[in-house]
Nucleic acid binder design. Structure first.
Lengths: 144, 144
DNA sequence: AAAACAAAGATACAATAATACAATCATCCA
DNA sequence: TGGATGATTGTATTATTGTATCTTTGTTTT
C-alpha cells in the first residue's frame, strides 16, 4: 500500500485546522478498511516531514484519535491502530464488573493478610486523598 | 507455578510506564508471597520476549527493584529475589500494595462510570454478602 | 487598535528500543 | 587440571518516539 503520508492531503488554506484534517482522514481510512487493527502509523516526525509541517501538529492529530480510542500512541514505541470495542461490548463489560472488581479487590487484600474491614478502610482513605485537589502526599501508614 | 511472564500484564495504553508496571507487579507478587527468597526471575531477554517489549525496558524495571534491595541482578548470572525483606519492609510493602490495589479498584470503577462512593458501597455489600452464605447480586445502580 | 483566543512551531524532556559491551557460565579438549 | 572458546546474562550508550511547555502567529472580538 502506498505510504500513509502520500494519502493524506492537507489544505493549508482551509478553515479546518491541519491537525483536524489529519485526524479526520485517518478516521476515514480506518472506516474504509485501508487501515486495520495493529497497523503502525508513521511516526509523528516522519509524517510531519512528508507533510512539511511541525511534528507537534501531527502529535495533536494523534492525540485526538487516541482520546477517541481509535489508535494507541506509545512513547518510544510508535503509534498503532487500536481495537475499538463496540458500544454493546462496552455495555456488557460494564454490567457485571463492579461487583467483580470489588470481589477481586477483597480477595487480593486478604491474600496480603488484611481483613475486609482493613481493605475497606484503606479504600476510604484513598478516596479521601484523591478527593482533595491539592493533597500533600497522604501517608496512610501511620493512620492505621 | 505459572511462569512469571504469564502473570505480568502490561497495559500499553496506560499512563504508567511499562517498566513501572513490571516493577510494581513484581513487588506485589513478593508482598503476596508468590515470589520468595532465592527464586530466579526470568532473564531480561526472556521476559522481554514474552511481553513483546525491548529487554532494556525489563532491565530498567529490574534496576528499580535492585535499588530497593528487593532483588539482586548479577551480570552473567541472572536475577534473584534477594534476602527476605525485614518484617518492617514487608509490612510497608504490603501496605503500599494494598493502597495500590485500592487505587486501581477505584480507577477501574470510575472507568466504568461509577462514583467513588458507589464503589465503596458495593465493596461494603460484597463484604456483607461474603459474611453470609449466599450473596444475591445486589443492584446498587438504582439506589444511588 | 488592543485583547483574547486558537493553531502551529520550537525546544526540552521521558520512555522505549537498538546496538555494542563486559562478566559469568558451560563445554570441550589438551 | 586448566585454559580456550562460545553462549548467556546484565550494563552502558546512543538513537528513536511521543509528550509537555512555552513561544509565535494569525484571526477574531471588543
Amino acid at each position: 500500500m502506498k505510504p500513509l503520508a502520500e494519502q493524506i492531503k492537507l489544505d493549508f488554506r482551509a478553515g479546518e485546522p491541519l491537525y483536524m484534517q489529519i485526524a479526520r482522514q485517518v478516521e476515514q481510512m480506518v472506516a474504509a478498511g485501508l487501515l486495520q487493527v495493529g497497523d503502525q502509523l508513521p511516526t509523528v516526525r516522519e509524517l510531519a516531514t512528508e507533510l512539511r509541517i511541525n511534528f507537534n501538529t501531527v502529535a495533536r492529530a494523534y492525540h485526538v484519535l487516541d482520546d477517541q480510542g481509535l489508535i494507541s500512541t506509545q512513547r518510544g514505541r510508535g503509534t498503532y491502530i487500536w481495537e475499538q470495542p463496540t458500544e454493546e461490548m462496552m455495555q456488557k463489560l460494564k454490567q457485571k464488573t463492579l461487583e467483580e472488581l470489588a470481589q477481586r479487590f477483597l480477595e487480593e487484600s486478604q491474600n496480603l493478610g488484611y481483613s475486609p474491614e482493613q481493605a475497606a478502610e484503606v479504600l476510604r482513605q484513598v478516596i479521601a486523598a484523591s478527593g482533595t485537589a491539592d493533597m500533600a502526599a497522604s501517608n496512610i501508614d501511620q493512620e492505621m
